[in-house]
């Protein structure tokens, strides 16, 4: 990762900008939402491999900051919502796309299915991802040249 950041710095102009945009695991909330009401049914469970990836990304950025490659200018979190037509589709998505990173425990699975079955016809099942966006400015001279 640090080597990739060094490469990015190389191809950016002096004073150029790096935008780092990524989801961070934080036991994302599961909801059932219709136009009339939204109810939280639980949270996903984060797996260690995903948490380790987040830590490695943070570490790489911290290292590039300490080397003076990039200067942190602004940082914020914001929600990014995935939504599906049914609780089954959420479960399928997690099993197929995110099985290494997050899981639904049995209680959340049951609560979500139940809430969706009882909700209004327009209800969708949602997962609220926590997104991190950071703007970095290219720093001074490269270390060692």
């Amino acid at each position: 990762m640090v080597h990739a950041l060094s490469e990015i710095r190389r191809v950016l102009i002096p004073n150029g900008i790096l935008i780092d945009l990524r989801p961070v695991l934080d036991r994302w909330t599961v909801e059932v939402a219709s136009a009339r009401a939204t109810s939280q049914t639980g949270r996903v469970t984060d797996f260690p491999v995903g948490l380790k990836d987040d830590a490695a990304a943070n570490q790489a950025m911290a290292e590039s900051e300490s080397k003076g490659w990039f200067i942190r200018e602004r940082e914020e979190f914001f929600p990014f919502v995935y939504s599906w037509d049914s609780a089954n589709e959420l479960e399928e998505w997690i099993a197929e796309e995110w099985e290494d990173f997050v899981a639904l425990d049995e209680e959340t699975r049951r609560a979500t299915r139940s809430a969706w079955a009882l909700a209004d016809a327009d209800a969708r099942v949602q997962l609220n991802l926590k997104m991190l966006i950071t703007r970095w400015r290219v720093g001074g001279e490269l270390e060692g040249g």
Partner: peptide, 22 residues
């Protein structure tokens, strides 16, 4: 291509974006 070996010359871009990829 891979971020570890960017096939570009120095000072080629004004902005770089890591899109869900760090």
């Amino acid at each position: 291509a891979q971020a570890e070996h960017l096939p570009f010359s120095k000072n080629k871009f004004d902005i770089a974006a890591l899109a869900w990829s760090l």
